[in-house]
């Protein structure tokens, strides 16, 4: 119990200490605010530019979540197709891998041209989806392949239908794999959304990345930091939420995975 309390108190105390050290150093060394603004200046940004920053954060979050959901659905569907047809896997997986290993920054301009700058949000969504999709596909495929062959035989012995096997065997046994892929996909969807916003570099997207670019051009470094913090916060919350969902779904069945 005391240990658990320490695990919360220590990081919080360390964080507060670092903030204080930051504030103090900027004042003491007289660092120019356009090099490193003090925490108080960053906080002040939220008073002046709060609404516009939050609106942008909202946009980026929306894109991230949409890309994430699309990635999860399409990843699972494709993995199911791969698991039920070797031919489909052999034919399609090279494309999935190629899409994965090509850096998204390099594909971005092409996608943006195709979709049109007036629909930059769609380009951003597609790019974020491309990035988030692969871990779902890979983990779901691995999970579906890891099904105990004896259990599979047992289902065959009792003449289980495809859907019975899918629902009662394939989904539960691949769930631990799938959820770890989904967790990765959540973080990557955010990364993908931000990278794509940068690549689009247009006010049309209106996301947090655009705010960072805009503030950078105007040397509003404190505003850059504020946007950056919002991004980090979003990433952390997303990850924590997905970890929690994973725990909810798995802690009873797969007790041995509780700590991973």
């Amino acid at each position: 119990m005391r240990l658990q309390l320490l695990r919360i108190i220590l990081p919080v105390a360390l964080f507060a200490g670092l903030i204080w050290l930051w504030e103090w150093s900027v004042a003491y060394w007289e660092i120019k605010p356009f090099v490193l603004p003090p925490p108080s200046a960053i906080l002040a940004v939220f008073e002046t530019d709060g609404p516009s920053l939050l609106a942008s954060a909202w946009t980026t979050l929306g894109t991230t979540l949409a890309a994430f959901v699309l990635a999860v659905i399409s990843g699972i569907l494709l993995a199911t197709l791969f698991a039920s047809s070797r031919i489909a896997e052999a034919a399609l997986s090279p494309y999935a891998v190629t899409l994965q290993v090509t850096p998204v920054v390099a594909i971005a301009p092409l996608i943006i041209v195709w979709v049109g700058l007036d629909k930059a949000w769609l380009a951003v969504l597609i790019l974020a989806w491309i990035v988030a999709f692969f871990p779902v596909l890979a983990s779901a495929t691995a999970g579906l392949k890891a099904v105990d062959p004896n259990l599979r035989d047992l289902f065959r012995l009792y003449h289980a239908s495809f859907w019975q096997t899918f629902r009662r065997l394939m989904i539960p046994s691949s769930l631990p794999y799938l959820l770890s892929g989904i967790k990765t996909a959540g973080g990557l969807a955010l990364v993908g959304a931000v990278v794509a916003e940068f690549a689009a570099a247009s006010g049309n997207t209106n996301g947090l990345a655009w705010r960072i670019l805009e503030a950078g051009n105007r040397l509003q470094i404190a505003k850059m930091f504020a946007a950056l913090m919002l991004l980090a916060l979003m990433g952390v919350i997303l990850y924590a939420l997905l970890s929690f969902i994973e725990w909810l779904l798995l802690h009873r069945w797969h007790g041995d995975r509780r700590n991973t």
């Binding site: 004896n150 035989d153 065997l169 539960p172 046994s173 069945w253 797969h254």
Partner: peptide, 12 residues
């Protein structure tokens, strides 16, 4: 059919 391993569904 009884397999060499218990072959149970770990989640059930």
């Amino acid at each position: 059919f009884i397999f060499q391993e218990p072959t149970l569904m770990a989640w059930a």
